[in-house]
Nucleic acid binder design. Sequence first.
DNA 1: GTAGGGTTAG
Length: 663
Amino acid sequence: MSRSSSSSVLNFLRHVSFPPDPRLLPSALKSCPALRLARALHAAAAVAGFSRDPFVSSSLLHAYLRFGATADACSVLDGMPHKTIVGWSALIAGHATRGDAEGAWGLLERMRSDGVEPNVITWNGLVSGLNRSGRARDAVLALVRMHGEGFLPDATGVSCALSAVGDVRDVSVGEQLHGYAVKAGCRLDACVATALIDMYGKCGRADDIVQVFDESSNMDVASCNALVAGLSRNAQVSEALRLFREFVGRGVELNVVSWTSIVACCVQNGRDLEAVDLFREMQSEGIEPNSVTIPCVLPAFANIAALMHGRSAHCFSLRKGFHHDIYVGSALVDMYAKCGRVRDARMIFEAMPSRNVVSWNAMIGGYAMHGEAENAVQLFRSMQSSKEKPDLVTFTCVLGACSQAGWTEEGRSYFNEMQHKHGISPRMEHYACIVTLLGRAGKLDDAYDNINQMPFEPDGCIWGSLLSSCRIHGNVVLAEVAAENLFQLEPENAGNYVLLSNIYASKKMWNGVNRVRDTMKNVGLKKEKGCSWIEIKNKVHMLLAGDSSHPMMAAITEKLKHLTMEMRRLGFAPSTDYVLHDVEEQEKDDILSVHSEKLAVALGLISTSHGTTLRVIKNLRICGDCHEAMKFISSFERREIYVRDTNRFHHFKDGKCSCADYW
DNA sequence: GTAGGGTTAG
């Protein structure tokens, strides 16, 4: 038994006597830690003949409601000779909180026929309870009926109803409530303002959030937090950051929820480096992260492969006891896997006191990302012998693992198992997995057939996957089909043009190359800059392809020159069909030599001691030339090198890659 | 007896 629950039992025992004393029973019931004990006290009071005492029965009623035992609570109220409005209201709120809308309405009628008229608290309790139990529509209906019966809903009722509206995303009802709050004079109440912001945020109305903010004068810290969350939901990061600072200017004391919200806002919108900075700033402001902050910030460390930062958040969690939290545990599993430490991820996973579907998916997905299909599938089998049911994400991970390993038949069979054994109908992402699975294995026609047989219109991911496969297997005809669809679906995505152009270039079809380049120029698209990150001694370095702004660039260039010479000497020939441009061979070598992952690895080599493992992440897929170069470097420099691209991990060791050149 | 804010996997 934990320390806190044993102390609550001691506190309870202090109020218990034998035989039972009617003056002590109310306080005993108030501190009663378990439903069974409340029932025992009830029985003892009945035997002693004072269970109908107004104080005792009222305490029993509330104790039962605290444990959600609405039936017991009902029988207590039934036995009360004088039923008070407080008793009725508590019972109605209790039923509503358990999601029993019908029971709550029935009690409201019984209360009236008993001669007790509901008041505003009775109604608010009903609205609040229904909202809390997820019966959002019923909560709004209750408020409407309350109004229809001549009651003026107050700030409390309106806030609860607004919260319900946000859950059902019915902005027109939300707007009506907004107008009502203005008329009823409770619009400027801080809770109403917060609930309005929350509602508009959930309904996708960022402009209205800002308008509520502009028209409010007495917003507090919770309003700020709702504001940040609402803007984050609608991808308005800069606005969230600006208003977050403005709250400080207004003298609002920000708390751990505020800081967690702004960190989460950056992470959820791909601004990982800013999230890391804010996480630091939070602590220098004297706000200590809690068990919600940690799972919010961990994905930022995971995304930029900041293993040292991630480890220190892990240590912090251990010190604070957060590591037992299922959110923290799952986020740690994901972080270690994405930082290249899939064994550490498994250790965390095994040590978790409880797991949910997210924890399983994080671990299975981790194996998939590392190309460890065997482990992924094995874990998927253990999941099925556990009580946790696989969901659509689980199958995305399992299918992903199969496609990384080239397990075509296994992948097909899991695709069927998903539908027929688990009743999950395939979604876009599952078809994308199947197309990748078949395409990468060279079964391009099969992949194309699958696209044509899909029950809905394929999206950019599907065609993008086919196009990538065409790049690997040099299929110009299907590549043109895929590209045609992609240019319609995502005309702004430069990567598609680059891929098609590379396919033409690899076939020496220079007219095609020029045509695509002209189109790109006309549409005004630039090739996305390759970008890599490497963490060295607790600092994350970002390197851009062709960019020479890094302070150590001279040494990096020197190191690359030396490596290139050694590669040549040992018979390594750069493979030049990976670049977009049709240029002289020598110039192509130069372009290749500045791909960002090479810069990152060179920096890693000169900044760490011999034998240190290097971990690099990249915003694009690693090119074939860099892949060859990494294999060479791993053997020549005797270093293990992990490169995580958009697709998976490549673990280079002794001249070989964990993907076995299949990617 | 009634009210508003932050979390993990793809």
